[in-house]
Design a protein around this nucleic acid. Sequence first.
DNA 1: CTGAAAGCGCTTACAG
DNA 2: CTGAAAGCGCTTACAG
Lengths: 341, 341
Amino acid sequence: MPTIKDIAKQLGVSVSTVSRALNNHPDIREETKQEVLEAMKRFNYTPNAVARSLIQRKSNTVGLMIPDITDPFFSAMAHDVEEVLSENGYQVVYVNTSRRPDKEKRFLTSVMERKMDGIIVTPDFLDEEAIELLQRLDIPVVFLRRRPPAGLGMPFVDVNHYEGTCNAMDYLFSLGHRRIGFIGMPRYSFTGQERYRGYVDSLNRQGIEPDSKAISWNGRTIECGYKAMGRLLQDAPDMTAVFAANDLLGIGALEYSARHHIAVPGRISVIGFDNLEMTNLHWIKLSTVAQPRKEMGRQAAELLLQMMQSNQRTADSIILDTELIIRSTCSPVNGPDDNKE
Amino acid sequence: MPTIKDIAKQLGVSVSTVSRALNNHPDIREETKQEVLEAMKRFNYTPNAVARSLIQRKSNTVGLMIPDITDPFFSAMAHDVEEVLSENGYQVVYVNTSRRPDKEKRFLTSVMERKMDGIIVTPDFLDEEAIELLQRLDIPVVFLRRRPPAGLGMPFVDVNHYEGTCNAMDYLFSLGHRRIGFIGMPRYSFTGQERYRGYVDSLNRQGIEPDSKAISWNGRTIECGYKAMGRLLQDAPDMTAVFAANDLLGIGALEYSARHHIAVPGRISVIGFDNLEMTNLHWIKLSTVAQPRKEMGRQAAELLLQMMQSNQRTADSIILDTELIIRSTCSPVNGPDDNKE
DNA sequence: CTGAAAGCGCTTACAG
DNA sequence: CTGAAAGCGCTTACAG
């Protein structure tokens, strides 16, 4: 591989001149520049970005740390993150943490050693050590779908889980429902907590006491939703609707109902959260709350870009709105279906 | 950020010594080494991987070029690629080409400039320019789900689309089907072509003439499958089964049938390809052909690792087997359901 | 076992 | 407009 030196030698000019042509610096005669450029082409010269990074203290790479690229949410975000960043000359190195604390830390260390210019992170564990690493990095970082620890002053971009849930609940209220069950994901999940908060507050605002027998914490899968629906129907038989904290759980609830000949939305209404593609399947048509997932990736990347350009460590966070998607799994209490009985 | 030089100065030793401690080179006294390591900790020293890459001519990064991380296939592969590579000390920079030739080339150029150690690629366009770039790279490259142009000698890893299709067809034959329709993705798609080949050859082996009225080329979506099913049912009404070249198409066929009260598998059997998660949904239960998608990513990464270690440009390709997944959308011709009529 | 020196491939003041 | 020189932060023969 020829270097800048080889080109210089061939042309009998100095490396400075070659460098100036390469970076189209103004201090070079147009003719000289053309000659150099031509020679570069002739010798198949490719600039060495590593050498350039070393001296410029800028690697033009950003890190993306997510729990699992296999999750449609994160892959959608990763897609847009890459798109806007690569358009701006950055390469993105990504890592799946698999929600393992050691891998999160390993990544942060790597960010430091590789001299990355900025990172977008969705951490699940932030102990003191990780927080300290994050600070020592001294580069722009934006949190995606997570809140940064107070005091770090780093921005985040996320959806308004709380409000999205309130909207879903209000929709259910507008249909006349009062006894509404909750099928949640694991208790420790951040998004799960936010959605639960929305559920409880909505109930309270209607003067309804949350009923612990109508609340179930589970995993995140269809099977979990299936089982939870069974339990809830038994423990709180007066329930007329169910809010599932994510679509997989909601689909599980639907499946339980289908297998046990429980009419949805006749006997019970079901609403989900996420708007996964499959919720729009002909057999499902789950009403749910949509999140602008691609938008999120784009916003995070643009925010980071802005911080890198202005060399700032802090910025305003971005909270995106959700959208209520009404399909076929909710109906009024005592509605047409009920009358048929 | 302290450098090796700062540490050396603090301790009154040479930079060589510090470097030796860092790389635990044998030529250093244990005590000295400990002192240095301790000082590094004290001053929060982090080695600069960029400088190291420059001098070692090894960046410890590999590139992953895929069409779209949002496609469950590629995200599954990307997951495992990252897992095995990061375990071996490599960082992976990924790019979505969005099936755009310019982005493919831009990536290849970047690989060259960034001095990546190896790449895994799923190209959709390989013109002469791209091929030349690929050769000039002079690093290990493995193709994923694509065949390298002959003469390059580069290995690929993929699933046996042809055989998977033959297995599905044989299953249909075993159920007594003879008039079998084909719903394909776009004609130019590599995987689509392979599966079509399997379809036609299977038919021929049974002495059945492929019927152009029972063959439909489409897009890749559920909606495409829906429309195709309508057309096929009209043009080839004697058809008793349909092979859909991917699951989305198969689901669309199922949806058309459901809406038009066409019994599946009673009136017509449907089989797909891919084994997407949603095909196992209670309402769908599509029989299909499974591909070991995570396995594919792992194999590609391990193959690349091996090539990088042995510094080879060539290796044996890996063709993975598919698995026939029998669920509920296929039944014998003149089977129980038919008798009910 | 330790250190001085050269060098990886660039960029960037500084002089002219 | 051009060139000589220093330097980015390391590693690696080479001498001792």
